[in-house]
């Protein structure tokens, strides 16, 4: 087993363990730290898939900024007591049925995947240069739309948290 395969399996196991932690831990702070674990191992997988720029954005923006925001809110709110997991009669049963059906659907869909022949090999695939050219030529309009989306989100957050009214 070569180095890349080993790195892949370690990152996969860490990601799955982190995902289980996100679902199972009772204290929100542990949920967030498990999610950081998932994001960092996904970042390693992005690097294996030669997506260097997405890797950097994942580490800096996602694991860095968004998760710190979650941690801020948790420290601001203090510990939240969570009651047991059953809130409706049959909820666990219905959730299990829905999840089983959904997982079966996903696997069936993935089994039907037939891969198209890859495009011609791109020597700068996944680099900042390749992503930048894409963002500022073919995808300029969606790129500008995301800036409007972020502006709206920032204005909305400030409006919602403006204190006494």
């Amino acid at each position: 087993m070569g180095a890349a395969t080993l790195v892949f399996w370690i990152a996969t196991l860490v990601a799955l363990a982190g995902g289980l932690g996100v679902v199972l831990f009772k204290e929100p702070i542990r949920n967030v730290l498990s999610l950081v674990l998932v994001m960092l191992s996904l970042a390693v997988l992005f690097l294996l898939l030669s997506a260097q720029f997405v890797f950097a954005v994942q580490v800096i923006v996602y694991a860095g900024a968004v998760m710190v925001l979650f941690l801020f809110v948790i420290t601001l709110l203090g510990p939240v007591r969570e009651q047991g997991t059953v809130r409706l009669p049959w909820q666990i049963f219905i959730s299990a049925v829905v999840i089983a059906a959904f997982a079966g659907f996903l696997v069936a869909m993935l089994r039907g995947v037939s891969y198209r022949t890859p495009d011609a090999a791109d020597p700068i695939f996944g680099s900042v240069q390749s992503i930048g050219v894409g963002l500022f030529t073919d995808y300029l309009f969606p790129f500008e739309l995301t800036s409007i989306l972020l502006l709206v989100a920032a204005v909305g957050a400030i409006y919602l948290s403006r204190g006494a009214r």
């Binding site: 968004v66 495009d119 996944g126 995808y139």
Partner: peptide, 30 residues
């Protein structure tokens, strides 16, 4: 994106990250 040698997948992943950030900000503010 890697399998198809096609950068659109990575561009869309970046858009998803933007949407996720916006969603987290507004959700946490609420």
């Amino acid at each position: 994106s890697r399998q198809l040698n096609n950068r659109e997948g990575q561009l869309f992943a970046l858009m998803t990250m933007t949407v996720a950030a916006a969603e987290a900000v507004v959700g946490l503010a609420i």
